[in-house]
Computed example of a mutant assay.
Amino acid sequence: MDKSLTIYVLSDSIGETGELLSRAALSQFNSGRYEVRRFPFITAEEQIMEIFEEAKNEPSVIIYTIVIEKLKNFITFKGHEFNIPTVDLMTPALNAIESVLDYQPKRESGLIRRLDENYFRKVEAVEFAVKYDDGKDPRGIKKSDVVLVGISRTSKTPLSMYLAHKNFKVANVPLVPEVPAPNELFQKDNKRIIGLIANSAKLNEIRQERLKALGLGNNANYANIDRINLELEYSREIMDKLGCIVIDVSYKAIEETAGLIIEHMKRNFGEKVFQ
């Protein structure tokens, strides 16, 4: 006769790990009526007690991924009291890691969930940078944490992507003499605007390489030194009107410029630099 079993999965997070392991273990048994019940976000002894009151009425096993010492001990105690097997998934791994690192774990619940949330914020920031790259939509200026302004080839796009991986929502706006700067720029907190410049010789070199990559001659107006100087003069006028910080990126790596921007944001908005 097939036997039945219910596995109760308790977690201080969402309980996916405990459920996956439970189902993996059950797959090793060919017959029987098995059920896995997941109970996420366990934070109190009262919740655990309710689960044991339910579990005592049927063949059951308690599997848990809880790191708070008080709750772990309560589960162990109640398991003995009700004669229900309990399986602690986290402690053996934590003990093994602690023995190598030689310091104790944090034992804070929900840390992996916070990491997941951080991941999704990063993805959102990257999508934002792509959507509002190169002045595609000036509405992004209002929504952004940081706005980068400068003429072509002053590292606006790579900086936007780098800062996005630091969870900043970045819009970047190209400054072109023939195109008026968007009004949204002048409505933005100027401490959130970063002006990027570079010396004309460096820009000339970069633009010539860009033209070669596109299969174009290097005599195009785009790489003309007088044209570059005109664009730089115009960009400085706009940056002066904005009253924003200006960074010369001529000989700076992306990481170095990004570090300066992050420090600027922290000075002005503290550690919590997001809108």
Rank of each mutant, 00 (worst) to 15 (best):
I66C: 04
L20W: 09
E256K: 06
G259M: 11
S4R: 12
K70Y: 06
M161K: 00
E178T: 13
D240I: 00
K188H: 07
F269A: 08
P177N: 05
E124Y: 10
E46K: 10
S250I: 09
G135R: 02
D137W: 11
T91P: 02
G140S: 06
K266Y: 12
I254S: 06
L216Y: 13
M1F: 13
E178V: 02
N219S: 13
L148C: 00
L71P: 03
S22V: 13
R207L: 10
Q275K: 15
E271W: 11
V67A: 05
F41W: 06
P85M: 07
T91N: 10
E124F: 03
E256R: 01
I14S: 14
P85Q: 08
R267F: 07
K202L: 14
I247V: 12
F82R: 00
K143R: 15
Q47F: 01
N224Y: 09
E35D: 14
P180E: 11
N118P: 00
E256M: 07
V87G: 01
N199K: 11
L89F: 10
A171Y: 04
I84F: 01
I141Y: 06
D88P: 02
E271C: 08
D145G: 05
S144Q: 04
K252C: 06
L10V: 02
V67H: 02
K169D: 01
I262R: 11
M239Y: 07
D88H: 03
A129E: 08
F41M: 07
G110N: 15
Q28C: 05
K72E: 14
N229K: 14
P158A: 02
K142P: 00
N221R: 15
F74I: 06
A201G: 13
E53M: 04
N30S: 12
T76Y: 13
S31T: 15
I261A: 01
V146S: 06
N199F: 04
L211Q: 05
I112E: 09
G110M: 10
I97K: 11
K272P: 00
S109P: 11
I51M: 01
I247A: 04
T6H: 01
E231P: 01
L26V: 10
L111A: 05
L21I: 15
I206D: 01
G135C: 04
L216C: 04
F29C: 07
Y222W: 07
A220C: 13
E54L: 01
K202W: 11
G270C: 07
K166S: 05
T17Q: 04
I62A: 03
L94K: 06
I97R: 08
F269M: 07
L214Y: 02
E19M: 13
K70M: 05
A258V: 10
S13Q: 08
P92E: 08
L196G: 03
Q275C: 12
A181S: 10
D226H: 08
K72W: 05
L175M: 06
Y103D: 11
R107V: 09
T6M: 05
D88V: 05
S109L: 09
V146N: 08
E231M: 05
L211G: 04
M49F: 13
D133Y: 02
R210V: 12
Q208V: 13
E50K: 01
G150R: 10
L101T: 12
R236D: 09
G140L: 07
G270Y: 06
K266T: 12
L185M: 01
A25K: 04
M265H: 09
P158Q: 04
P174K: 10
R38I: 12
V130P: 00
L232V: 06
G270S: 14
L89W: 09
F41S: 10
L111V: 15
